[in-house]
Nucleic acid binder design. Structure first.
Lengths: 199, 199, 199, 199
DNA sequence: GATGAATGAGCGTTCATTCAT
DNA sequence: AATGAATGAACGCTCATTCAT
């Protein structure tokens, strides 16, 4: 990589991290392109050399941050000793929930913008071109058990976790995260059971 | 009601329905107050006689539309012959899902803005000052069964239904509504079971 | 005066005193006609039955308040035992200064809007159609002394008092009122002396 | 200075002179930022690149114009042969009065907005960081005479000149400028005398 | 006479986008 | 590639004024 390319990379990263800071602090609507550029110590016009508009940089951020969450969770899982499919799925959920509960601004930012399409395409670095869905499929395969409608199963788990934790973390309402977790994980076990094929 | 009051009522309704149309068509961010007023064939200043700002009219719309959904579902339930708690809860969910699937714009609008705080305060017309939570509590009481953490139980059901149906209706992804429903309802039964206290 | 006329009088007075309160509290520019009307507990349209616009009511207020200041000063002078022209003029100045220093808002309001034309036409109630200038002329006549350019003499005194006290009362800068007074009155004596004709 | 900086300077000056023209012609209240910008043949947004708001540009104008008045007077004094303190002070007053009487609009603008705080901070170009007060102090020092309360003395002179000339120039009432001057200057001499300390 | 709902011109301000340097 | 001055459309909001009741 040439020196120029390095410089460009640095500028892009400065814009991304400035945008992330401002989006999570003040919300996307209250952040202008001038804000982002000046916070990155770049000129306004420079922004347009790297991104089309505010929504372009937002989408890049969601993907990046989503990646990070799952990478962390995946790495932690590999260091753990969990075995059953249920334990592994819950481990990942729990890990991501804990990451988010420590950065409520990130949670707000992500969950407002996380659609299934985005989610299922998040790619995991270090696992050759694998995405979230692939990780889950792998877990299922390793368990040796059989499931119908794997997509729907994962979809239901992800949506349930995402929406209930959002409320619990941001508003602590109607229950706190700590109150929620036991029953949330119990429900995850029910959902997995519900989709298992037992001959 | 005087003639003047009638006229005022009409104008407010014109503003509400214009706002709803524009919010669902173009999104709140791309709708200006001038748009709403002119679409209601009123002067810009008139808007401010009835609402504080865009977010005031949005909140009024959410409450109004939320009310309507639950009122319809509740009325239909009273005309049905369902008995068990599970059947009743699923009947309401199903009814609301069907209403929303026929108005995806309403679904988009509502579910982007529906927090638990808003939800649990939606009031049902015709049932003396009762809100959604009261309706559910009533169903539970009538069943004669005992549950721990009723709030959390309802919360999990509502969030699961809301988030999965949003995706299924708007994006038909990863499954269509018709594919989702059977498993969604099965999961609802699991959740209810999970919270029941059996001595 | 008919009952109706009394009611009208009351409404006009309510408007005047509301306007005065608001003008002195928030300034004329930040006071709207709606403010005045609602503070007087009258409808907006009613304002226009009594005054042409904001500046109409302002001018009425200046005259009214100016009258009051001079009436009070004049009444107090009649109860005093001062004899020489200098003592009388200074007594009036001092009296008005003290009135104003107790109502800085009134001072601000008056002195921003007090031109010589307005000043010299302020009428004193209870003295048959006499104005400020007449009062001063009377004092001069009673003294039995002779002056050239009486108008200019009074003009210089009034302007000097008005402008220096404005600064002293509102900003206490560059000197306070108490520091200013002795020298101010000494200068008034000099001015009177300067215009006296001594054969 | 680069070409760009020159262009910016020109634009700022265009805004200043447009604002001055409009403020003096129509008053500040009746001048909008759009007026100023379009009169300077610039876009409305450009105004905000150079000034915060209407009052920012007003304050800049007062300082600029005030500077000019005193600079001119000071330069003329240096070319004159006046010696005594009284003659010098009256020379400056007379010079400024003449400047103002030729630009009544400037007089209106300045004297409505000239507070003691503003006045005493006006800086004189070409005299290393000196302001009006410094000039007067210098004159006093050079005279070798002793005065008590120099601040108050100058304050009284400035306020008297400002307020009487305002009326004389703008309204020619109750006397014209030419009628006023002799007595005004006589009063200035009295004031100076009044503050002198004679052992 | 009194009301206050309705108007719509007008305001200050922001900001995405362009483009000459 | 990078800049940042310039633009002007668009916005939310205010308010004097009118007029049907």
């Amino acid at each position: 990589m040439s020196k120029l390319d390095e410089k460009k990379k640095l500028k892009q990263e400065a814009l991304l991290s400035s945008a992330f800071k401002l989006f999570t602090e003040k919300g996307i609507n209250n952040t202008s392109i001038a804000d982002i550029a000046s916070s990155a110590k770049l000129a306004k016009g420079t922004f347009y050399l790297y991104f089309k508009d505010k929504y372009d940089i937002r989408d890049r951020l969601i993907t990046n941050q989503g990646n990070r969450l799952f990478e962390n969770a995946n790495k932690a899982l590999l260091n753990s000793e969990y075995n059953t499919l249920e334990d592994c799925v819950i481990f990942i959920a729990d890990n991501i929930i804990d990451q988010l509960s420590e950065h409520p601004a990130l949670l707000k930012f992500i969950s407002k913008n996380l659609s299934w399409a985005v989610f299922s395409n998040i790619r995991i670095a270090g696992r050759d071109n694998m995405n979230c869905m692939d990780i889950f499929e792998e877990l299922i395969d390793k368990s040796g058990r059989k499931f119908r409608e794997k997509n729907m199963m994962i979809f239901m788990i992800v949506e349930l976790v995402n929406s209930t934790c959002h409320s619990a973390i941001i508003y602590k309402s109607p229950v706190t995260l700590e109150e929620l977790k036991p029953d949330l994980y119990k429900t995850i076990r029910h959902i997995i059971e519900q989709f298992e094929i037992t001959d």
